[in-house]
């Protein structure tokens, strides 16, 4: 996606930003992120049993949770763009396919979708392998992380399609007409004129989608992905300390989501352009 750096001299700082701001444009809500990190550190240091043990056991899951979330999110951005363009396509077949995708996926719980990808989909592949006599397909075994990533991508891609669609439709019609009348094709106009403007509009909802995705990634623990939640459940089974375990799990998610929210705000601020 082409992004043009806003280079207005003295680009005015957004006065409608509801966040409290200290001197030097420092976002005070960062304090909350630091506070939660400090709380984790304090628990680990002052009550090492079980918090230090819990942290050390669960921390392997942080990377997995982030990996699944970030890979899925990058794919979601692509799928959502294709889905969003499909939703507004003039061609009724393309628009129909995109609409069915969005409506069907949004109508099925994410947990059920994840289970489909991990448990049902491999059986389908194996069945096909049996039918066509392909031993490679017949012995197909699903990788939990891959299936979880596909599941999250398919589901969030549908929601993201609607975000893109709304963003693109919020750009005045005259922008497309001006681009087309200069001889650009529909896709050139989308790429160089419409989408760069739409991206600014959809940044806040896209940021929210990322944070939702991060939280919903905890569902992948059900399909054998060793994320924060699954590691937490395993530690609880070992330690018989559900309260401390899930306090630690909750705090870890909280750090990640609060940090993400700050990043979203920061990105919004630097890409803000007067219009």
């Amino acid at each position: 996606m082409e992004e043009i750096e806003p280079s207005v001299p003295g680009n005015p700082i957004d006065s409608h930003n509801p966040l409290p701001k200290g001197k030097g444009d420092f976002d005070l809500w960062w304090g909350l992120v630091i506070g939660v990190i400090a709380l984790i550190a304090l628990l680990v240091i002052l009550v090492p049993d079980p918090f230090s043990r819990a942290f050390n056991f669960i921390k392997d899951g942080i990377g997995i949770s982030l990996f699944v979330t970030i890979i899925s999110f990058v794919l979601v951005l692509v799928v959502g763009l294709i889905g969003g363009l499909g939703r507004i396509a003039k061609n009724p077949v393309i628009a129909g396919i995109a609409t069915v995708y969005v409506e069907v996926i949004r109508g099925i719980p994410l947990l059920v979708q994840l289970m489909f990808w991990y448990f049902a989909f491999p059986s389908v592949i194996q069945g096909i392998g049996k039918a066509i006599g392909s031993s490679a397909l017949e012995n197909y075994i699903a990788d939990p992380v891959v299936m979880a990533t596909i599941g999250l991508t398919f589901c969030y891609g549908a929601y993201m399609s609607e975000v893109y669609r709304a963003g693109i439709q919020s750009i005045p019609k005259g922008q497309m007409e001006a681009a087309r009348s200069l001889g650009m094709t529909y896709f050139q106009a989308m790429r160089y004129v419409i989408i760069p403007q739409a991206v600014r509009v959809i940044l806040p909802p896209v940021g929210n989608e990322f944070i939702s995705l991060l939280k919903d990634s905890s569902l992948v623990s059900v399909v054998a992905v060793g994320d924060i939640t699954l590691r937490g459940r395993q530690f609880m089974a070992l330690s018989f300390k559900p309260v401390e375990t899930f306090i630690m799990v909750a705090l870890l998610y909280l750090v990640l989501t609060l940090f993400s929210a700050r990043m979203v705000t920061w990105i919004e601020r630097i890409t803000k352009l007067e219009r």
């Binding site: 005259g174 922008q175 001006a178 681009a179 009348s181 760069p196 600014r200 219009r275």
Partner: peptide, 15 residues
Amino acid sequence: TEVGMVFQQFNLFSH
């Protein structure tokens, strides 16, 4: 490409 168009609302690319 051979026909230039000027609109009532200008339609400059605002970004």
